[in-house]
C-alpha cells in the first residue's frame, strides 16, 4: 500500500517521532546524568543538557569503578558480561542446531520422548527453576565461574524449535541429492544445513546475545566474588550503595557503557538479522 498524501505523511512522521522520543528520552536523561557531578543531580532540578564531566566520569568508571559499592572497574564487568553473553549465544545455538538436526533427520528409539523432553524445557526458564538450579550449580562447585553463569541458561529449547522449522523447509530432494552425492550425515550437516541456516543463525545470535547480556537475576544470585560480576548485575549493586547516596552520575555512565555492546551487535548484524527473519525461500 503506497499512499502519497502530505497530511498523512506528516501524521506518520509525527507518530514515529513521538515513538522515538518516548524510547530515547530516558536514554538521553541517562546520558546527560553521566556528564555531571553527583551534586548536580541531588540539587532538585534535573539538568537536560550535557555537563562538562563526560571524560572524567567515564574514565573513572573504566579505570577504577566505585569502590564504595564493592564493584570492580566497569571494564572487568563488561568483559564478564561479554564472555557470558557469547557463551550463552554460541552454546545455545550449537546445542539447539544439533538437537534439531537429530530430531528432523534421524529415526532413533525414544525419539518422541526426546522431543517432548526438549519441549518441556520451554516451560522451565531459569527463573522458574531457580532454586533447584542454584543447588545443582552450587553442588557442582560452579559458583563464581563462567560455566556457572552460562550453562544453566544455555539449557533450554526455544532455538531447537526454530531450527526444526528451518530444517523442515529444506526440500527432501536436497537431502536425497546430497545422499547420492556421497555426503554422510555429518558432511550433510556441515556442507548443506549449516550454510543454509546461516541467516537464521545470525538472527538467533543477535537475540540470544542480548538475552545473555541482559541476564540479571541469575548472575546476581550466583556471583559473590567481584571478579565475576556482570555489568547488568553490577549496576544494581552500584545503585544500592549502603552508606551514602547512590552516585547516580557514575551509575548512569555505567548504564551507557553497558548499552554499547548489544547496540554494536545489532548494528553489525543488522543485514543478516533482517534476512534471517524474513527470508523463506530455500
Amino acid at each position: 500500500m503506497i499512499e502519497n498524501r502530505p497530511g498523512l505523511n506528516l501524521l506518520a512522521h509525527l507518530t514515529l517521532m513521538l515513538g522515538v522520543a518516548i524510547v530515547a528520552l530516558p536514554v538521553w536523561v541517562a546520558f546527560v546524568a553521566s556528564t555531571h557531578t553527583a551534586t548536580d543531580f541531588m540539587s532538585g532540578t534535573i539538568p537536560l543538557w550535557p555537563g562538562p564531566y563526560l571524560v572524567e566520569n567515564y574514565a573513572r568508571m573504566l579505570d577504577a569503578g566505585v569502590s564504595t559499592s564493592g564493584t570492580p572497574p566497569v571494564g572487568t564487568m563488561m568483559l564478564n558480561s561479554l564472555v557470558m553473553a557469547l557463551l550463552i549465544a554460541c552454546g545455545k545455538i550449537a546445542i539447539s542446531i544439533t538437537s534439531a538436526f537429530a530430531i528432523v533427520y534421524f529415526r532413533f528409539p525414544l525419539r518422541n520422548l526426546a522431543f517432548w523432553c526438549i519441549f518441556i524445557t520451554l516451560m522451565l526458564p531459569v527463573e522458574v527453576r531457580i532454586v533447584p538450579t542454584f543447588q545443582v550449580v552450587a553442588d557442582l562447585g560452579l559458583l563464581d565461574s563462567y560455566a556457572g553463569l552460562s550453562i544453566p541458561l544455555i539449557a533450554s529449547a526455544t532455538a531447537t524449535f526454530l531450527f526444526r522449522q528451518v530444517f523442515l523447509t529444506i526440500p527432501d530432494e536436497l537431502t536425497e541429492a546430497a545422499r547420492i552425492d556421497g555426503a554422510g550425515p555429518m558432511k550433510f550437516f556441515r556442507d548443506i544445513l549449516l550454510p543454509l541456516s546461516r541467516t537464521n543463525i545470525a538472527a538467533l545470535f543477535v537475540i540470544l546475545f542480548i538475552y545473555g547480556w541482559n541476564q540479571y537475576l541469575w548472575p546476581l544470585l550466583i556471583t559473590t566474588s567481584s571478579d565475576y560480576y556482570t555489568i547488568v548485575a553490577g549496576i544494581k549493586r552500584m545503585a544500592d550503595a549502603v552508606d551514602g547516596l547512590p552516585q547516580w552520575h557514575l551509575v548512569m555512565a555505567t548504564a551507557m557503557l553497558a548499552m554499547l555492546p548489544p547496540v554494536a551487535v545489532v548494528i553489525g548484524m543488522q543485514r543478516l538479522f533482517v534476512k534471517g527473519l524474513v527470508e523463506t525461500e530455500k
Binding site: 526440500p171 530432494e173 536436497l174 536425497e176 541429492a177 546430497a178 547420492i180 556442507d191 548443506i192 550454510p195 543454509l196 546461516r198 530455500k282
Partner: peptide, 12 residues
C-alpha cells in the same frame, strides 16, 4: 546419478 524434478541444486 539422479536428476530430480525440482532440480535439487544446492542453493548456497
Amino acid at each position: 546419478a539422479m536428476v530430480f524434478q525440482n532440480y535439487a541444486l544446492y542453493p548456497h
